[in-house]
Design a protein around this nucleic acid. Structure first.
Lengths: 392, 392
DNA sequence: AACTTTGTTAGTAAGGTTAACTAACTCTCT
DNA sequence: AGAGAGTTAGTTAACCTTACTAACAAAGTT
């Protein structure tokens, strides 16, 4: 917050006071001028003046009278969530999932498309543009009301430069993708790692609500995580924080193809599938390894029980390391981990309590496939906080 | 920065502008009113007025003329580092180490005392008070110039409540020690973990200068770390961040005494000494295990070579885990690790490069025993930033 | 002597504050 | 039921603080 210019005149103060009023309105949903005055310590005349301006600007609405508290009824104010709209997009496997939302993050329209092939970069951008057109049409919104679009990509994104440093599936390696999309769509673009987007989604709308320090652990093709510390996304000095697939869990002396880390080589979905190859032959394309493994174990397969135990224990080791270093309030289990049954979660929890002094809460991700999209939308809200709408 | 009140009037603006001017003076060492005006975008009359006030308040000094740049010579201003003083204290083993310093962090006087016994809490506070008296006398400072004292303690400190939740050597477990000291000394007190103090010391005056995301890894009786992310100390949701002794490195099925973690059980100084007991009999009290081990290995002892390799590898694993999660710019090796020779550091570095994609810089701690004390002093400077001096 | 740079003085504009006032509503007592 | 007292919400007007612009004085250089 409160960044940019560090010195300045009274104009700055006015802007900050407006921001604070906006925050209060958003926080309370509906609130009167008088109550804003009490909350913010600003005098009532000042609040009135600023509120009136913000009504002019279309950011606030009067929405009727509240109940009397012994005197004149208050005029309730509400944030105008329809003042602007934002878009989100997520590439997940070979589908493109998009949505348009109001400032509350509520979806107004949604759009999905199967991408024909492993996606040439140029083409994908056309898909994005087309989807955005559809969404605008479906929602009936004028295009100039759109603040920006958040795009979740597989791979390591460099937020500073707007490039992707590792992204095999899209073929965007190293290209200044953010700028490219921005130019094609004529919109501000926020790009980020898909796991980060999911993290943000769960944080603002899922099991992470109410916490301020959470780690989101994702087991899929690889193993990654998103880290939010004291309410702030932590990305690392070179945007490589949370790359927990590189932790030293499991034997290190295996194939070092460079791209994947020791932990994920052994205990990501493909890693587990490889270990289970002997007795788990009938694994379909889109289905979960862990689900299959659990079923197999429940049916009494000795090898499955053993492997499952090893996997749980390794995941628990990963969690223990994270907890030792970061001491989060909450750790969200996601990807393959959502299929763990109650027994398995208890198992992991018990290990943690044995190994570390202060174990965090453990919760499975709750938003399913929507997490990324919700996060993408909110990434734009984060980049255009209500405060920045005052500049427009 | 800029915390507390989120709204306010012109008075706030004035305060912020004063803060910014102070920052500029500190940053440049010596600077004229005109240059401050250019740097801060504040008008010259405004800068003049604020500077004059701050001279009245004793925070700034005029220190003579600068060189002409084609016109009237500028009057150079300097921060008055002597305006206030701060104290620091560190309990290290059975010695109490104290210092008094100016606002630059420069020591004005120092005091050391051997504590007779494992230190009863009450007594130790008396030692502290006595030391402070000595320091004030030695430096000739009036006591009201003292802003506060930073105290580094072994154990896990709870900064919020000002208590120590785990500290076997001092016997302060759970007591509201911060308040107790504050009342005895009549001074604001900052308490923190000794490793955190050392971290801060290296960050502001040691090898950490110039970096913003650093991890300080300490191997001693236990294994711990201090974490600074984007210039901010990170402490975790329950002040337990950086407790890396609990990482899952080494066999987990050893004695679980609860207090110490798996990693530190095996690879802290005592852990290593235990493993080396067979061939490293002549270990003196105050000397380093690693130093002895290295010497032994250099002399050709097979077992020492093997153990040393195991230790280095395990430490490297720990570093790899930290790096995977946090992606710091710099990792500082401290405690036993400062004794690692060039060969050993290279060894660790090579492993890291093999295991993780982006290894940080690796540096040994540079301040030696002073680190904690310097950090303690700076912890007070952090709590009383120049900005807060304006309130007095 | 002409030009520059530094620092100050004087008047003005912007923003927030207090004090007082109007508007609108509740409650109680007759 | 109705009037007046008390309360809360919102507005108006005068004032205060702070920074800004413009003009000027001071002290250099070329």
């Amino acid at each position: 917050m409160r960044s940019s210019k560090r010195t300045g005149s009274s104009k700055l103060v006015k802007k900050w006071n407006k921001e604070e009023i906006l925050q209060q309105v958003i926080l309370h949903g509906q609130i009167s001028r008088a109550d804003i005055s009490k909350e913010t310590q600003l005098s009532r005349p000042c609040v009135s003046a600023l509120v009136d301006e913000m009504i002019q600007e279309g950011l606030l609405h009067e929405v009727g009278m509240g109940d009397s508290r012994g005197g004149r009824k208050p005029i309730l104010l509400e944030y105008n969530y329809q003042a602007y709209a934002i878009a989100g997009a997520v590439f997940e496997g070979s589908t493109l999932d998009m949505a348009i939302a109001d400032l509350k993050g509520q979806f107004l329209a949604r759009y999905q498309k199967r991408l024909s092939q492993p996606a040439n970069g140029e083409l994908v951008i056309e898909d994005l543009a087309q989807g955005l057109g559809m969404l605008l049409q479906a929602s009936g919104l004028p295009g100039d009301r759109l603040l920006g679009i958040g795009v979740g990509l597989p791979g390591v994104t460099q937020r500073g430069s707007g490039t992707v440093s590792f992204s095999p599936s899209t073929g965007w390696m190293g290209s200044p993708i953010q700028k490219t999309i921005e130019e094609r769509l004529g919109l501000p673009v926020i790009i980020d790692n898909d796991v980060n987007m999911m993290t943000l989604g769960e944080y603002v709308r899922g099991v992470g609500v109410g916490y301020s320090t959470v780690v989101y652990m994702y087991v899929g093709t690889g193993i990654g995580s998103g880290i939010i510390l004291d309410g702030q996304f932590y990305r690392g000095s070179r945007e490589a924080a949370g790359e927990i697939g590189f932790m030293m869990i499991g034997p290190a002396d295996t194939r070092k193809d460079g791209a994947s880390g020791v932990f994920e080589t052994h205990y990501s979905a493909p890693g587990i599938a490889y270990k289970a190859k002997g007795f788990l032959s009938d694994l379909k394309e889109g289905s979960s390894v862990i689900e299959a493994l659990i079923q197999c174990a429940d049916e009494g397969c000795e090898e499955a029980v053993r492997l499952l135990d090893e996997v749980y224990r390794s995941w628990a080791c990963g969690i223990a390391n994270i907890v030792s270093i970061l001491n989060p309030e909450l750790l969200i289990l996601s990807g393959e981990m959502v299929h763990i049954d109650e027994k398995g979660v208890k198992r992991i929890r018990d290990w943690l309590n044995e190994w570390v002094p202060v174990a965090p809460r453990l919760e499975k991700a709750s938003l399913g496939e929507q997490a990324g999209l919700i996060g993408a939308v909110h990434s734009v809200l984060e980049a255009f906080p209500s405060t920045r709408l005052l500049d427009r």
